[in-house]
């Protein structure tokens, strides 16, 4: 089975490392970016099967990156899950309007459950 590619856009190094660790172990090919600008470039370059996107990041934040992504032909259909520590109802509806599949507050989730969620989403595609 071909490995699914996953792009993780996250500025906190500790979190980024553990996410990379886990998803690699689970059999994904993982690419990363530490801010929205690099994330956008990497997304277009690598065309991942799933993007895990943080919101608060330097240079370009997650919501801006998502909006820009959606303006692209390929980007319009890219699978995105927002992974953030901000909980804001406004942001959620913005996110869902921009076509993110989910909005998860990192601190409230087991890593395994996030992995499972990603897996389920990919299966549905």
């Amino acid at each position: 089975m071909e490995k699914k590619k996953i792009l993780i856009v996250e500025d906190d190094v500790a979190l980024l490392n553990v996410l990379v660790e886990k998803f690699t172990k689970e059999g994904y090919k993982v690419v990363t970016a530490k801010d929205g600008a690099v994330g956008l470039k990497t997304a277009f370059l690598e065309r991942p099967d799933m993007i895990l996107l943080d919101i608060i990041m330097p240079v370009m934040d997650g919501m801006t990156m998502l909006q820009r992504l959606r303006k692209d032909e390929w980007g319009k259909k890219a699978a995105v899950i927002l992974l953030t520590n901000l909980n804001s109802a406004e942001k959620v509806s913005d996110a869902l309007e921009s076509g993110a599949f989910d909005y998860l507050v990192k601190a409230d989730w087991f890593l395994q459950d996030i992995v499972d969620k990603v897996g389920n989403r990919l299966k549905k595609k």
Binding site: D12, A14, L15, V18, L19, E21, K22, K25, N85, L86, V105, K106, A107, F110, L111, Q112
Partner: peptide
Amino acid sequence: HQLRTPLTAIRWYTELLLNGE
């Protein structure tokens, strides 16, 4: 909000340890 990030890191690393990974 700021506290959540390091707390998340601790939570996930602990989870990995407990899972024997």
